[in-house]
């Protein structure tokens, strides 16, 4: 997280060198995630600073795809093809995907989960922004490729390759499941 904040500050500093007007900007999305595991909802809020055609912010949300999780990420947008109060933009997000829960009481493939571990979160896509009136308010629509990784450690009891004997010390070990999840993300948002 420290790294993300550092990058955010750096980006803002770079953009600040050529700045004429830096304003606070907030993007708030609802959307769908579509992949092999079906369609799921997502919610996101990204808050940061805008300078001309650049936006840099920190985002978080809830991602219901396969394993519910909370991504926390740095978001960088670049506007282009501006026509009046409308423009396209490229959006890229990168950060950490935190599992929704870290409990020890649910099963995966017949194993009991011991710990859920955060993984990488990333998204890249193309958006379209329609400004409303003379304010900063705008409607956003974005289509993106989205990726998240979740790792789950599960308990497993291993038995010695021997035999039917009086069991003294079954060895409890940890297996690992990794979920590399790739989705299409379609989001509709409000910018202010």
């Amino acid at each position: 997280m420290k790294l993300i904040f550092a990058i955010a500050v750096l980006c803002m500093a770079i953009s600040g060198n050529a700045q004429s007007k830096i304003t606070f900007s907030s993007q708030n999305y609802v959307g769908l995630l579509e992949g092999e595991q079906g369609s799921k909802f997502q919610l996101q809020t990204i808050n940061g600073m805008r300078n001309r055609t650049w936006f840099v912010g920190l985002g978080t949300g809830i991602d219901w795809y396969y394993r519910r999780s909370i991504p926390a990420f740095l978001s960088v947008n670049k506007d282009f093809f501006r026509r009046g109060n409308r423009n396209f933009f490229i959006a890229t997000d990168a950060g950490i995907n935190f599992p929704w829960r870290d409990d020890k009481n649910y099963n995966v493939w017949g194993y009991v989960v011991e710990k859920s571990i955060p993984g990488f979160y990333g998204e890249a896509g193309l958006g379209y922004k329609v400004g409303i009136g003379k304010t900063n308010d705008a409607v956003l629509i974005q289509l993106a490729y989205s990726y998240k990784h979740i790792r789950e450690k599960v308990k497993n009891i291993y038995y010695y390759p021997g035999i039917m004997i009086v069991s003294l010390q079954p060895e409890v070990v940890t297996d690992r499941f990794d979920y590399y999840l790739r989705r299409l993300s379609l989001k509709l948002g409000w910018n202010f």
Binding site: E36, D175, R176, Y179
Partner: peptide
């Protein structure tokens, strides 16, 4: 391209004993 990129990957890492 997008379809091939949208395939999920699930892996199981465990200890295997080979006789």
């Amino acid at each position: 391209i997008l379809q091939s990129c949208l395939k999920d990957k699930l892996t199981h890492t465990y200890t295997l004993f080979i006789p």
